[in-house]
Simulated assay, not measured.
Amino acid sequence: MIKKLHDVGLRSEHAYTAAVASIGLSVLTWAASLRAEPGAGLDRADRWGIYVGEWAPTFFGLGLALSHYEQEEGSLMGKAHTDGERRQQMTGTA
């Protein structure tokens, strides 16, 4: 699944940005719910804030998984580049 997300263009920076944004959005939804629905009370506002706040750990987890995948992919690409240079040196082509 992480490979598919990476293949469609999602990078770890995107997931980290979404995580930080969801923390801010959590506070905003809490405040908006508190003001927009004063009859519903603090409990309802708290539930909205907690609901959106639960997205942050998911996005941070995706960011970590994507970061790990990107590092592995980078090390494999570096290895392939080094192997290609070795082959060129061994065959005398450059």
Rank of each mutant, 00 (worst) to 15 (best):
V8N: 05
V8E: 10
V8A: 08
G9L: 08
G9T: 07
G9F: 03
G9C: 09
G9Y: 02
L10Y: 07
L10R: 07
R11C: 00
R11K: 11
R11N: 11
R11I: 03
R11S: 08
S12Q: 09
S12D: 12
S12L: 01
S12T: 06
S12V: 06
E13S: 13
E13C: 06
E13G: 14
H14A: 02
H14T: 03
H14Y: 10
H14F: 10
H14C: 03
A15I: 00
A15H: 05
A15S: 04
Y16P: 03
Y16H: 09
Y16T: 06
T17D: 14
T17G: 13
A18S: 08
A18Y: 07
A18G: 04
A19E: 01
A19C: 00
A19S: 08
V20A: 13
V20M: 08
V20L: 07
A21W: 02
A21R: 04
A21P: 04
S22P: 04
S22D: 04
I23Y: 00
I23N: 04
G24I: 10
G24C: 10
G24W: 01
G24M: 07
G24D: 11
G24T: 10
G24V: 09
L25R: 03
L25K: 06
L25A: 09
S26F: 05
S26I: 01
V27A: 13
V27Y: 05
V27H: 02
L28W: 08
L28H: 11
L28V: 15
L28E: 10
L28N: 14
T29I: 06
T29S: 11
T29F: 03
T29H: 12
T29L: 08
T29A: 10
W30M: 05
W30R: 02
W30I: 02
W30C: 04
W30S: 00
A31P: 07
A31E: 09
A32S: 07
A32T: 02
A32W: 03
A32M: 02
A32R: 00
S33I: 01
S33F: 09
S33L: 11
S33Q: 10
S33H: 02
R35L: 15
R35N: 14
R35G: 09
R35E: 12
A36C: 14
A36G: 12
A36W: 12
E37Q: 14
E37W: 14
P38S: 05
P38Q: 11
P38D: 07
G39H: 00
G39I: 00
G39L: 00
G39F: 00
A40G: 12
A40L: 14
A40C: 11
G41L: 01
G41V: 06
G41K: 01
G41Y: 07
L42W: 13
L42A: 05
L42F: 15
L42N: 11
L42I: 12
L42Q: 10
D43M: 11
D43S: 13
R44Q: 12
R44H: 12
R44V: 11
R44Y: 10
A45W: 03
A45F: 01
D46F: 12
D46Q: 15
D46P: 02
D46V: 15
D46C: 15
R47S: 12
R47N: 14
R47C: 02
R47G: 09
R47K: 15
W48A: 06
W48R: 12
W48N: 09
W48S: 03
W48Q: 07
G49C: 04
G49V: 04
G49H: 04
